[in-house]
Design a binder for these strands. Sequence first.
DNA 1: CTAGGGTTAG
Length: 669
Amino acid sequence: MATASVQPSLNPRAAAHSLAVPTSNTQSLRDMRINTSGPSLRAMFLRAVDPSRPASWSAAVADLLSSGDPVAALAVFAAALRANPAALRPALPPAFRAAAAATSLAAGRQLHLLALRSGLFPSDPFSASALLHMYHHCSRPFDARKVFDEIPSPNPVIITAMASGYVRNNLLLPSLALFRTLLVSGSAMAVDEAAALVAFSASARVSDRGITASLHALIAKIGLDMDAGVVNTMLDAYAKGGGRDLGTARKVFDMMDKDVVSWNSMIALYAQNGLSAEALRLYGSMLNVGGGIRCNAVTFSAVLLACAHAGTIQTGKRIHNQVVRMGLEENVYVGTSVVDMYSKCGRVEMARKAFERIKKKNVLSWSAMITGYGMHGHGQQALDVFNEMKRSGQNPNYITFISVLAACSHAGLLDKGRYWYKTMKKEFGIEPGVEHLGCMVDLLGRAGCLDEAYGLIKEMKIKPDAAIWGALLSACRIHKNVELAEISVKRLFELDTTNCGYYVLLSNIYAEAGMWKDVERMRVLVKTRGIEKPPGYSSVELKGKTHVFYVGDNIHPQHKEIYSYLGKLLERMQEAGYVPNTSSVLHDLDEEEKESAVRIHSEKLAVAFALMNQVPGSIIHVIKNLRVCTDCHTAIKFISRISGREIIVRDLQRFHHFKDGSCSCGDYW
DNA sequence: CTAGGGTTAG
């Protein structure tokens, strides 16, 4: 955001004229008149102002701010100073909040000066708390701290404002320390609902176990544990903070006096933790036994997240219908969730339709659409949306570039990926993070540019994570680079020794290089370290019900029929030229046993189940919790040809659209 | 007259 750093002048009236305001290319207030997002709105408020009444000015600033136009609010504040200097006192706090909302540090600093010169700071507590708020919102917690230290005896509201700003900037222990000063201050009223809420929101992000529970005990002693707002945050803290105790969160939820936020929080917590069925069940009880509590936009966001995760397209559609009926499809949060849901349920064209219906798209709506196209391997369409986004005036952010680079990587767009990785910093000032690097290593590695990928990792300022070394390792597998594979594994095992996939990869690399001793070493390592593959499972939705299949499933009521169906199918596949590939099996088994090990992989069972039960000709959707193994990938290609069916498989990373014997991923994933 | 508060989105 372009802001002017104008030297503030000495008297408040003159300072107002040079107040920096955050418009794209505007430097001073004078230009603002013709260059803000809502000139007519501002004019309307200006007409309503009685210039002789200071309170009238401050009301206009506050109203413009709450109507979502902080830039106009700042402009009106400047006009107020010109018209009536007495307006400074009442209008300064809302002006600070406007600078905060616009995250304009330049404007905020000039207001700070204004507060100092007029003597309002530090004597006026209202200006002081607004000033703190401004620095915290502009990501300057240490400037906020300096301000805080200059306040002679900060009252509980100011202390709470400071604590909440610390949480906002992820300074959690300092925040809790401030809360402690409130506790020991001796003043009976010092800890109130707002303070308790801030404390719990801090403990929700702290990994230490037990903090939430001890806060809970304290809060109960003060008698604040009946307030729904406080308890809602506590619920969140139990589930997110140290221990990630969803069970206790649920207990608190069951006992409390619930409002809509309580329901939303609990549903969201389930959804975020992958417990989609629980989330949907709770949504059902909210409608049935919720005591007349109506769901809102937040509810739908959370429920749609659950659908997206589970890939339940039928349930997702039902929820979407409900969204439309309640007139929420234009809401940016809900709309973005709908886009995400459809993308993750394999319907990227429905996602696009939902995307078009969002009234005021924000950076996350655009990013979700780019991610959607990317996951389906439509790299060019993803980049088209990215271009459209920039043309519309929406600036990309850190997340957007993850979407863009992931799309390039899924579609193998090598040059585009290189270009945007370079350009994101040069043109948009966004430093690449681990996620971006991960995409690049995947993309370069897949294309065989292993040294370039390794080079990027080495020049990275931040520490690469296990996923990055894992991506390099899997590229080493494809391009048979034993030397670099060993480097990757060394780094990898410094970070994560529990992921079985890495052992399998390295073992495969050794096997393909004929290094049988090392293959054996890997096998022993897996055994002695007691490493287990997380159980693979796949799911298929049939008539609104989700059927889950595990490897070698013998729980599903139809499992016997499925195996015999699969047996016959395998015969036809082998006639068509299918040869089982058992390289993903690391156990000490003979070839025949290995073949039976891959034969019972969950995605094969799920596909067979769908073929047996779905309407002939319908598209088959399978959701898998791991990456598709090589053998299943080949097998499903054959199945798609033999059955003439379109099969869509979502794995951990992306979608595979199988049709007529080939896959949209181009056999790299 | 006014200040500090939570749940949603990749």
